[in-house]
């Protein structure tokens, strides 16, 4: 429940939240997940909320509470199968939070996320739900089911506050992208990355907005002479 509350606080206090979801996939299916939350344009507001004891009847966590919780998640993630190099960076001056980890496969990453969320609240996790899949030259991604639950719990006023924010989803590969299925997505000039730029408000309205299937050029097999 707390993970939801912390996320909710971060999202609702910030009319100008910027979230960057950056996923790099190697040819062998391993990769790196990076997640950045930038609240620097609302740092006065963020500081104001942190100065409060409670907000909407819920206790507002202190900086040390947040740091303690982050450290807890870091330890949990480090112990998950196929997850390594877990890094959390917190900047409470500009309110920028960065998370990064390496994974051996997207299955490992999803399993780790589900297990951590389930350790907080089992009801939030749908074991069958898959938001990342990788097969040969095809990669599919969407929004974790957790996000749907989170937005369903938000009041309309809180959702409105998200309109000014931005959510950027980037997926990177080791080889060129041939095509992709999302009309809102854009392929980088070097064709090694796909970006979808939206805002947290639109995400709450249309959770399909990040859904994308990306087709990569086949790996060229070496021909033996």
């Amino acid at each position: 429940m707390k993970i939801l509350f912390y996320a909710l606080i971060l999202m609702t206090l910030s009319s100008c939240i910027e979230i960057v979801d950056d996923l790099s996939i190697n040819n062998d299916g391993s990769g790196t997940a990076k997640y950045t939350i930038n609240l620097s344009s609302s740092k006065i507001k963020a500081n104001s909320y942190l100065a409060l004891d409670s907000l909407n009847g819920k206790k507002v966590p202190s900086i040390s509470d947040i740091e303690k919780k982050i450290e807890e998640y870091k330890k949990k993630l480090e112990n998950k199968e196929g997850i390594s190099n877990v890094v959390f960076e917190t900047n409470f001056t500009d309110f920028i939070f960065k998370f990064q980890c390496d994974f051996e496969s997207v299955q490992n990453l999803q399993k780790a996320v589900k297990e951590i969320v389930a350790s907080e609240n089992k009801n939030l996790v749908d074991d069958e739900y898959v938001w990342l899949s990788w097969k040969d030259d095809e990669f599919s991604r969407s929004l974790p089911a957790l996000s749907n639950d989170l937005t369903a719990k938000m009041k309309s006023d809180e959702v409105e506050l998200l309109k000014n924010g931005s959510f950027i989803s980037i997926t990177r590969f080791d080889r060129p992208i041939e095509k992709q299925s999302n009309a809102n997505a854009k392929i980088s000039a070097n064709r090694l990355a796909v970006m979808i730029r939206t805002n947290p408000y639109l995400l709450t309205q249309n959770t399909e907005i990040l859904k994308n299937t990306i087709y990569l050029s086949p790996i060229k097999k070496q021909v033996k002479n």
């Binding site: 910027e18 960057v20 950045t36 344009s41 006065i44 500009d94 980088s188």
Partner: peptide, 14 residues
């Protein structure tokens, strides 16, 4: 007046 951090994206590589 305050200062904020903005992310600048390279269109070649994102």
């Amino acid at each position: 007046k305050t200062k904020r951090i903005e992310f600048l994206y390279d269109e070649e590589t994102f």
